[in-house]
């Protein structure tokens, strides 16, 4: 474990807490893409299949459980909770995310580290996480102005993988046989997808103005 990775995990946790705060405090999920939340639930369920087979550390296991439970809880809340469900932007959140799931799964069947059930699902989860934010970014562009908590949620979500890239660079130079091309390249793609959001987020912060993405 290094400082970059720990900072990344904490930033990821913060993004989830901000989202939970937004939904719980405002009893609303307006501006939040249910499709992105569903993709994240699939990402964690597919990636943490080793939760019961490979014990790494208490920290690792606890965080896996937290990520799985929180992502499933958010999807459940957006689908079932009466008040929250009513505020869901159903007509704006129309990205066909099933195509993303299919494409990532086919790609994982082609490109993986080992052709085993667990490794293919791990690669699938890495590819899917890279594109999971797309429905959310599309929704933000369509809904114009973005409320603060939603903006902060997306910001921390993007920042966590950028910190992981620093973690991979650090491990590459400090560990003998460190090769994690699948995660590295996917992480670069994932972070690049946030580039324009980060740009407009920085502008809104600098000008102390409301964050609004050009349509």
């Amino acid at each position: 474990m290094n400082a970059f990775r720990l900072a990344g995990d904490i930033t990821h946790l913060i993004s989830i807490l901000v989202l939970l705060l937004k939904i719980y405090a405002t009893k609303s999920c307006s501006g939040i893409s249910l499709k992105t939340q569903e993709l994240y639930a699939v990402v964690f369920l597919a990636r943490y299949l080793d939760l019961f087979t490979d014990f790494i550390s208490v920290y690792n296991s606890v965080m896996k459980v937290v990520f799985i439970l929180s992502s499933v809880a958010i999807v459940w809340c957006m689908r079932r909770h009466r008040a929250v469900k009513r505020s869901y932007d159903k007509e704006l959140d129309t990205f066909r995310h099933y195509y993303l799931v299919g494409a990532c799964f086919v790609f994982a069947l082609l490109v993986h580290e080992k052709f085993t059930f667990q490794e293919v699902f791990w690669a699938f989860s890495i590819y899917l996480e890279a594109v999971a934010i797309i429905p959310q970014l599309v929704l933000l562009q369509r809904s114009g102005n973005v409320d603060n908590l939603t903006g902060q949620y997306v910001f921390f979500l993007g920042a966590y993988r950028a910190l992981y890239i620093l973690n991979w660079i650090y491990r590459y130079f400090t560990e003998a046989k460190f090769s994690r091309w699948i995660a590295c390249i996917s992480g670069l793609v994932q972070t690049a997808l946030y580039a324009d959001f980060f740009y407009y987020y920085f502008l809104s912060w600098k000008n102390n103005a409301k964050l609004n993405l050009p349509a």
């Binding site: 490979d54 790494i56 965080m63 090769s179 994690r180 995660a183």
Partner: peptide
């Protein structure tokens, strides 16, 4: 097992 297989990250 998972550690050297590179699956020690979240």
């Amino acid at each position: 097992a998972a550690a050297e297989a590179g699956k020690d990250e979240l």
